[in-house]
Nucleic acid binder design. Structure first.
Lengths: 226, 226
DNA sequence: TCAAAAGTGTTCTCGATACACCCATGC
DNA sequence: GCATGGGTGTATCGAGAACACTTTTGA
């Protein structure tokens, strides 16, 4: 059998995720009629896929995502108009601070939704979100993705919230802190504190990528499993 | 800025992996001049990507791969001829038994290579193989991929070899067997043994997908970590 | 009878879990 | 002074790692 080669329309879509107010948030753009979609677009001529994803993020948020990774390529559905098209999906993690700024919507409106309160999405995008969420949870135990959702300086309580939201369960404060401390992947910023509206001021910390790398290279598997 | 949408050439490539003689094997096709490539091809018009991958496997081996999964989409290199092209890579696991048969080479020659003795590969394919190997190792601990490399009936020693080859280290026989036994994901085939050329005959076993699924649904993480 | 592979339990150590109170701060 | 969130230590349990000999089989 021979097969007609034929070119195919390629589309890049990005699942932008953040955690704020103890909830997992996902950015969607309105496509009218109460229907929403993941930020997406066509790669320009000669533009590498990953750069197209970066551009889509920049166009929406005006910032660069620190963490951007390919998720999956969806190519098994044939849309109504009979044209072939595949979607290469990426996911990116955005610190909550960046989410406070004004959204640079361009012509279309964009909004952050709680991941468990998503509106109706265009065909296939709900699946993409599901896969992204699953991947995020999976990566939490053996990579440092959790830190990508935090600003450079953070409290241990904030870090713990990240883990709790992604894992969907509460963790014991003392056990959590002991493990983080013993791993040594976090460093106290001597004298730097953040005081919220209430309660005692929190010691600020910094992530230590060097230490994390060392541990990771020991191929220990799921350090950071809770 | 506006970007010209433009269609893109899409290519499917498959990393076919197997374990035999205590070595990890990878199938390559000759493209002449001492240069080799992963089995690959264009999806036909309207053919879903995964089906294209299945077809490529069928054309090479004359069999259907039990385990086939998407690996990654490579779209960041622009080949010499300046034409845009992306490669959607899949990986598949093949039991050693299937590898004993004659290879159905078609017009091009195909050969199984030891993964640590690969010949020169066409641009980008070495990277694909690296990613596939990494993914296989990662999946070993929290899925049942190991069993995809075995025939339906197997000895515990054979199963252990699969784990040792993928992990690249030797395991303690007693610890390995205890863990497998306690998980209950394997069943003795009463009275069925396989006797090799030397030594005591081995009790044959069968994988129990039902039990594995139950354990997996408990979201325990890395059951099967060694 | 010998070489080769299959099979079998116990001990120790370390990491995961469970659990409750005092401290600093803003109002 | 009180409500709110930050910070701390110990005891128990279970899973992982280390470790050596007996049994069966074919030649």
């Amino acid at each position: 059998v021979t097969h007609k080669p034929g070119s195919i329309g390629v589309n890049a879509a990005v699942v932008l995720m953040s955690i704020a107010d103890g909830r997992l948030k996902i950015l969607l753009t309105s496509v009218g009629e109460g229907l929403w979609a993941l930020p997406h677009g066509e790669p320009g001529y000669g533009e590498p896929l990953q750069e197209a994803a970066e551009r889509i993020i920049r166009e929406r948020l005006g910032i660069r995502a620190e963490y951007l990774e390919q998720l999956y390529t969806f190519g098994n559905h044939i849309p109504r108009n009979r044209q072939r098209r595949i979607t290469v999906a990426y996911y990116a993690l955005i610190p909550a601070a960046a989410l406070r700024r004004e959204l640079d919507g361009g012509s279309e409106a964009a909004r952050w939704f709680n991941h468990d309160e998503l509106p109706k999405l265009v065909d296939g995008h709900a699946e993409v979100v599901r896969v992204a969420r699953h991947r995020l949870r999976g990566k939490l135990a053996y990579t440092a993705v959790g830190f990508e959702l935090l600003p450079e300086k953070f409290s241990l309580a904030e870090l713990q919230t990240i883990y709790e939201v992604i894992l969907g369960k509460t963790l014991d404060k003392r056990n959590f802190r002991r493990k983080i401390r013993e791993l040594g992947i976090v460093e106290e910023l001597g004298g730097e504190f953040r005081s919220g509206p209430r309660g005692r001021a929190a010691q600020l910390h910094r992530f230590r990528p060097e230490v994390f790398q060392q541990i990771e290279e020991g191929l220990k598997g799921d350090i950071l499993a809770f």
